[in-house]
Design a protein around this nucleic acid. Sequence first.
RNA 1: CGGGGUGUAGCGCAGCUUGGCAGCGCGCUUCGUUCGGGACGAAGAGGCCGCCGGUUCAAAUCCGGCCACCCCGACCA
Length: 484
Amino acid sequence: MARDERSVTPQSEDFSAWYNDVVFRADLVDRGPVRGSMVIKPYGYRIWELLQADLDGRIKATGHQNAYFPLLIPQSYMEREAEHVEGFAPELFTVTHAGGKELEEPLVIRPTSETIIGEMMAKWISSHRDLPLLLNQWANVLRWEMRPRMFLRTSEFLWQEGHTAHPTAADATAETMLALGLYQDVAVEAAAMASVPGEKTPGERFAGAERTFTIESMMRDGRALQAGTSHFMGTNFATAFGITYTSESGTAELCHTTSWGMTTRMIGALVMTHGDDKGLVLPPALAPYQVVVVPIGRGEQAAAVSSAAAVLAATLQRAGIRTHVDDRPQLSPGFKFNDWEMRGVPIRLELGPRELAAGTALLSRRLSYRQPDAAKEAIPLERAPDLLAAELAAFQAMLAQRAADFRDDHTVAANSWPEFAAGVAVGWVLALHCGEQACEDEIKTETTATARCIPLAGEPEQGPCIRCGKASAYGKRVIFARAY
RNA sequence: CGGGGUGUAGCGCAGCUUGGCAGCGCGCUUCGUUCGGGACGAAGAGGCCGCCGGUUCAAAUCCGGCCACCCCGACCA
């Protein structure tokens, strides 16, 4: 391949290869020794920490408390909810030995914690006064995946899982929607993604849930990615684990439970939502470095430039802007420009003798939507904190707008099968569907597209199924797409 | 599980057809010169050629077996 060794595979040539190039070259991740495992490197982990802090704040602000449950779960727990075990059995890691001896009962490494938390909830809840019980945990989970992909599907991943118990179905449903709303807010406000909240069709439901909701996001190859999910369990787990309470009138009642999760997959989603052929593009809200200062100059100039860079960085830090000075002496400015573009830093400031003399810094944006040729711009140093705060806010908003425009530009409403097939090859399709599983399966076989969600905001509409012509279900259009 | 591919220096690869001193580029170390879009020179360091066995005077190379990882589908956050 004639391509420069130092750049990445273009998206248009092979999106999948592009993704791999970027996550490694941007220094987000490395491969672990075990199939499907990953080492999240400091730069990638910082993104996770920022997302985590944002989401954790929202979770706590809505009355949930963090707790931590064990990694190891008795195998028998998994088997108590029939659909749940059936759904997860193929993915389980099982521990059969400990202390050099075979265990009497095998332990599974949690693929998710409904069962062990359900068991504990049953113990902790006895009265209607104990409800609602609003728990969350930050943890790692393990699932044996057939086809791993960095961040998107690894055998071990990090997430947050909320687990709540409520007296009534209405309360639990409200909680399910509340959690979905938190995810949508994080996705849009922090990650600048254009997610669509909706409900999963029955075939796409979580194992053991009565209703599953999702936020679906569009990646830059037109595929869909589930970026967060929230489940209404009804009384399924309460029945399996005996999560009951005594009501005000003294009767024994089953709780209604929920669970909801968002994962390190979000990092992959960020990459595929905003990235381009120069590499990663990070929204300021989640960028480890929002501004990178590149000092330019050697010899006599170096000292003056580097101290000015340090002063500038300190000033910006004080203003709450995550700033980094790239003072690596052995590397040329040009190398650094490319490096930080690869790593997705929103704004770069060049500081050399010319700027020093003029009392300015040369500002360069990682991406300029609708003005791809926008030039570098000199900004006065004394106004840098205010100007950069504004620039970062504008950059964040620009990315969100760009993602929304991209989603809308790649979404079509189809009323015929040819339209459907063509639409789903390049993006999302809104179509009426009969709701039958066999029909969904047929669509998948023919186009590889699946029902992503029934958008909450969809307009009421009835008509014939896009595939089989039977009467539509759900009362509105369904999003179909190829998915990750 | 099906299909394809790859295992040789930290990374990317060549060498294998036709057996004969283990190579190249990048990176790394030291010194010097450089620094406004991926700098240059000189001198260095770095190897269980995936593993096990076989053939041979001699195996990275030929033969047999095994293992691992990657990519494309089915499963999934």
